[in-house]
Each structure stands twice: as C-alpha cells, then as structure tokens.
Amino acid sequence: MTPPGWHPDPGYSGNGPAQERWWDGAQWTGHVRASPGAARRRGIRIGVGVTVGAVVLAAIGGGVYLLGEDGGGPGTAASSPSAVPDPPGAPDGGEKDGEKGGEGNGGENGDGQGPGEQLPPTEPGFATDLAAGISLPVPQGWKGTSGAVGAGLTTGEHACPGDTAETCVRGGVFSAPAAAMKLTAGTPEEAAKKDITLNAQESYGGKSYGKISSHEELKSEAVTVAGGKGYVVRWKVVTEKGDDGYVESLVFPSPTSKDMLVVVRSGFDVNKDAPKLSVLDEITRGIKAASGAGGGAGGAV
C-alpha cells in the first residue's frame, strides 16, 4: 500500500515543471506542489528513472540512466487524481488544483519530505522500496538507494557510449510497484514477458547505446521471491553503440500486499568491468520483505 505523503502526480503530462500530489493513504487529494528541485535537475544517467534523495521512480530500467537528483515522474498508484474535499490530516503547504504558487513544501533542500510523509526504514546492507514492501540486498561496492516509492542499486559509473556527456553504469537493479510503471498485466508471468521489451529499450536503446539490433532469450521461468510465486525473463541484447547488455524483468507479489505486483528491472553490461550475472542471481535470492513491514520471508528458488 502506498503510504500517505507527497508522491509524483499520476496526472502529470510531462509539460512544464514536474509536480507532486498528496496521497492520503486511500485516494489522491486536490493538493499539489512543484517537485522539490524540479528546476535543478542534473541529468546523471544511472539506471532509468531512479532519483537520488527522494528516490521516486519515473521509469525504471536496468543500468542506463537516472533522470537527475530531483527528477519527477509518473504516478505511484493506478487511480487517477480527482477533485476531492480536504481530508483530515491533509498538508497545509502546497497548492490545490487551480491555485497558483511556488514550490510549496520541500523547498531547496531537495529532501522531498512533506508533512506526514513516511520515509523508508534504514536497514544496513539493504535498499528499501517502502511502497512495494521489499528490501534489495546491496552487494559489496555497490550504491544502494531507498525511497518511499522505488529502490535502486548501481555500480560502475562511466561515460555513456552514445552520449559521453551523460553517465551510465555497468550494473543497475531497480524496483517499484507495477502500478507505478503503468504495467497492468494480470499475472507475474504476463507482466514479466510484457516488461522485458520495455526494459531492454529503456536500458540499452535510445541515444545512450543506439538501437537494439537483436536479442537472445536466456531465461524465462517461474521463481519464488520474498515468499511469493513470481516470474523472471532475461535477455542478452546486441546494441548499436558500446557494450551489449543483459536485461532482466522480475515480477512477483509484494510480501506485504498480495494484490500488488512488484517489478524489479535489471541491466548489466557485457564487459569485463561489469558485474557477473551470478551477482544478479544473488540479489534476487536476497530480496526480502522490508524490515518491520511483515509478510513473507526472503529468498528465491
């Protein structure tokens, strides 16, 4: 369940500065505000769409780029925003639909924390995705980033082959609820098979690596993750520029909400300096219910 707080506005069209909308735990309210630091994006490319700081996913991909330290993105729940009366506990700051104002709460510190917002628990050695109810194990030498919506692991920063002004990574693993990615397939198998094409394109397509000329399916099978029955699809893709890559889409039910599917996208370069695929398997086996969130045990088989 997505916790109450400021989250990327699910109705944001991409025109103008990104904004956030207050989620009261049951529905989107009429309160909106500019995303903290929306005018200060730095465009660091580390895995598709995980933000540093607030860590709200815009679009999740393995191992390509990050929208920026304070980037915004699409919504975190399947429901659409609607005009509703002010609920008890709604924020005093920010704006309502139709009102004109500045950045509202959050200011220039970029912490993205609104009144009443729940921040992810701190657990040594793990990156926590609070909305999905999971924690990802952080391999030695990797960077792990927790967030209210989404979590990420990255390693091996380097200049993108197709655009050296941007930064790519040798390996990236990112999670989010399926609804945050607008992935509506019914079963984990259906969702994973649908997502892998998007993952491949966002991770190794575009100007960073050029087009993908071909792919080979390496894995397509059922898997148990964090106590739930999921599905994983892994491809090796051939790119136009730079290294080829391995991409993987893993989908499984949240250990804290069986009606919610969680998507974990991964991307590893095919390069001597990139992590081995065995590291990706270790990460999958180590995914568990977030500390204090209840739910199933960790591990994958």
Results as ranks from 00 to 15, higher is better:
G210R: 11
L218C: 04
K143W: 00
N15M: 04
G101V: 10
G94F: 04
G267Y: 00
V138S: 07
M260E: 12
G294M: 02
S208V: 01
A132H: 05
A148I: 09
G11D: 01
E108D: 14
V237K: 01
K194T: 12
R42M: 02
P17N: 09
N199Y: 01
G292F: 01
A83M: 03
R40H: 08
L280N: 10
A39M: 07
D24R: 12
A54I: 02
P177H: 03
V138G: 08
L280W: 03
K276E: 12
G93H: 10
A131G: 12
D259C: 02
A274H: 07
R33I: 08
K258E: 04
P161N: 09
S35F: 06
T224R: 15
G49W: 03
C168T: 10
P3I: 02
C168A: 13
A58V: 02
G227Q: 06
S80Y: 03
D244C: 11
G14V: 07
K219H: 03
T51L: 02
V238S: 14
W142T: 08
G53T: 11
V247C: 01
V55R: 14
M1Y: 04
E217F: 01
T29A: 07
D273F: 05
K207M: 05
A127N: 06
D9I: 04
A90I: 01
P17L: 15
A83W: 04
T155K: 06
P91D: 05
T224E: 13
E221F: 02
